[in-house]
Simulated assay, not measured.
Amino acid sequence: MMEYHGWITVRETAGDDDDEDRLPRIVDELRLRIAQMDSPYLLDLRYMNGEPFIHLGGCSNHRMTPDAVELFEHVGVIAPGSYGLLHVRDDEDPGHENEVRVLRLVRGVVTQHTEALLSPCIPTLEDPFTG
């Protein structure tokens, strides 16, 4: 099973010197990429309070394609001021089958961490299998 939930605040830079013309071009490029991903799950880019945000989530019976992770990495490259988190539970991830992992996007870099509040999945989220 593969479950994921995440968000990204899209910003051109980490400073206050954003080019007002560049951010809309970045958002347009991201809209095209999201449209090409053709996900049956939650995948949304919208403006809220004048700022662009990406929200994504899904759950499938098997490992997802790396599209969500690649999207985080791509945003980091084209808009290095962006930041966000992607929580992933993947029971087919060797060595991490019993963990919720967090991908953190900050200043153009994506890093992976164990989510201590939700891990280990058994017994934190679910009872041990007794069958």
Rank of each mutant, 00 (worst) to 15 (best):
M1S: 10
M2R: 10
E3K: 14
Y4D: 12
G6P: 07
G6Q: 09
G6C: 06
W7Q: 07
W7G: 04
W7F: 15
I8M: 08
I8R: 01
V10K: 02
R11G: 02
E12V: 10
T13L: 14
T13N: 09
A14N: 13
A14T: 04
A14G: 11
A14F: 11
G15M: 08
D16Q: 15
D17P: 09
D17K: 15
D19V: 01
E20P: 06
D21I: 01
D21M: 02
D21C: 03
R22D: 07
R22H: 08
R22F: 09
L23A: 01
I26M: 03
L30V: 14
L30R: 12
R31F: 02
L32R: 11
R33A: 12
A35I: 11
A35F: 15
Q36K: 14
Q36D: 14
D38G: 06
D38A: 14
P40F: 13
L42P: 04
L42Q: 14
L43R: 08
D44Q: 10
L45Q: 11
Y47K: 03
N49M: 02
N49Y: 11
G50E: 01
G50D: 01
E51L: 14
P52K: 07
F53D: 01
F53W: 13
H55Y: 15
H55S: 14
L56F: 15
L56Q: 11
G57H: 07
G58I: 15
G58N: 14
C59T: 07
N61T: 02
N61M: 01
R63P: 00
M64A: 13
M64L: 15
M64Y: 02
P66R: 15
P66L: 07
D67Y: 04
A68M: 09
E70T: 01
L71E: 10
L71G: 04
F72Q: 00
H74P: 00
G76H: 00
G81H: 04
S82L: 01
L86R: 05
H87M: 10
E92T: 00
E92P: 00
G95V: 08
G95L: 13
G95K: 12
H96W: 04
H96P: 02
E97H: 01
E97R: 01
N98W: 02
E99Q: 10
E99W: 13
E99M: 12
E99I: 00
R101T: 12
R101K: 06
R104L: 07
V106H: 07
V106N: 05
V109M: 00
V109C: 02
T111L: 02
T111I: 00
H113C: 08
E115M: 03
E115P: 01
A116T: 12
A116F: 05
I122P: 05
P123M: 09
P123G: 05
T124N: 11
T124L: 12
E126C: 11
D127M: 11
D127Q: 15
P128V: 13
F129V: 15
